[in-house]
Amino acid sequence: MGHRSSALAVRPDHEQMEQNVINEAALLESKTLRDSALERTDVLDRVKALSLLPDGMHVTTAMVAAYFQVGIKAIRSLVVDHREELEANGYRVLTGSELSSFKELSGIQSRTASLALFSRRAVLNVAMLLRDSEVARQVRTYLLDMEYLARTQPVDNPVHRDAASPSLDDRIDQRISHVLGKTVVPMFNALIETSSEHRQELIALRAGVQRIERRLQQHNARLQRLEGPRENRPLAGVMASMDAMNGREFEEHVAQLLRRDGCTAVVVRGGGGDRGVDITGRTPDGRHLAVQCKRFAPYVSVTSSHVQKFIGSAKVLYKADVALYVATCPFTRDAMNVAADGGVTPVDRSMLEAWSSGTELPALS
């Protein structure tokens, strides 16, 4: 009976802690919570650079779909379900003379009778509503991290700041994690060893506590990244800068990334006589390398025919051991399949952003 009382005494704390763990799904359900976070549009570029139209203020439906890596139909369906909320945050559809004026001022080329535009606030609004997108989920996580940080950070008052001021190590989430790992889990271990009647229940409770401990550690790691020195974070707008490059500048950028990661004999061959390969070189371990660079708009996709042409050039003409197809846009599903069958590594927009921000490309190691 004594063991039963000990186990049950822990349960209320276990349930309370699990309820207190920040749940990003709340943004999907609460318009009030979404409205409170709409000023933080900078999180869009923290997760993934958002390319804008030439007016520097808007994006199209296709560009929103490319950012969140979903189909255009998913964005249009979201607009149908939440049009009033999105319009309040900058979504609009241009037609007639208003559309003509916008085309003239922005330089955009479009023959459609209407054009849907999203402001950055509207894109952030989409991130808080879109369920089936990993990018949207990451945006929601960043928003909640920042909200948590704002609530838990002490007010920065120079008059009262001293050596005893709370630091990152003093945060409540770290203290709870420490107590769980050093006290509560060992307590469960001891109870499990000495109990037979309630062994399975205690094991389940211990697993729940360990799950909370891991989630708190992950949450704290995200906060550390948010608070870290700015020079250690990926530069916001890294993809926007690539979108502004011409073809040759983009090839040189990719060549520099290859050299940074230890590749040798890197030569940019882009031009009329490149025979379908823009860059050649050797990987750090000496394998022959061939690279194709495509600076497409973010709402365009590399197709299977593009990849098929590159396979012929890279594998037959250049006899490459490692073939990279680097693009500033997504790849179609068929293109990904063709690349896998042909031994080509597709480097899409999100992977290129990570590579440009310092992450090594696995195919080169």
Rank of each mutant, 00 (worst) to 15 (best):
V10F: 10
R111P: 12
D55Y: 07
G273I: 03
L289D: 02
H58T: 15
L149I: 07
L44H: 08
V184T: 15
V254Y: 13
D145W: 00
T359R: 15
R214Y: 01
A244S: 13
V139C: 04
N157C: 11
N220M: 12
R161E: 05
V80R: 13
V209C: 12
R140H: 06
P330Y: 00
M1R: 04
I203G: 06
F296P: 05
A290M: 03
D278I: 09
R76H: 08
P330G: 13
V155N: 13
A290T: 04
G281W: 02
M245K: 03
S313I: 10
A363G: 03
E104N: 12
L44K: 08
H3M: 12
S304T: 06
A240V: 14
V266G: 06
A244D: 10
G286L: 01
R131F: 07
V326A: 07
D285Q: 08
E227Q: 14
I172V: 12
M242W: 10
L52Q: 06
G271F: 02
G281Q: 01
G96Y: 04
G273W: 07
P298E: 11
A113D: 10
N125V: 00
E193C: 07
I108T: 11
Y325E: 09
L130P: 12
V254W: 13
D132Q: 11
R151H: 10
T345W: 05
M351K: 11
V79W: 04
V135E: 14
L53H: 09
D132M: 01
S110I: 05
G208F: 03
G270I: 07
Q16N: 09
V80G: 01
S100R: 08
V59T: 14
Q19E: 13
A190L: 11
P234Q: 01
E227P: 01
V326M: 03
A207F: 04
M146Q: 11
E29S: 10
R92A: 13
N125S: 15
S313W: 09
V302P: 08
E15W: 04
L130K: 05
T183G: 04
A265Q: 14
M128Q: 14
T345P: 02
L257H: 07
E29N: 06
H160V: 14
D45F: 02
Q292W: 03
F118P: 01
T41F: 05
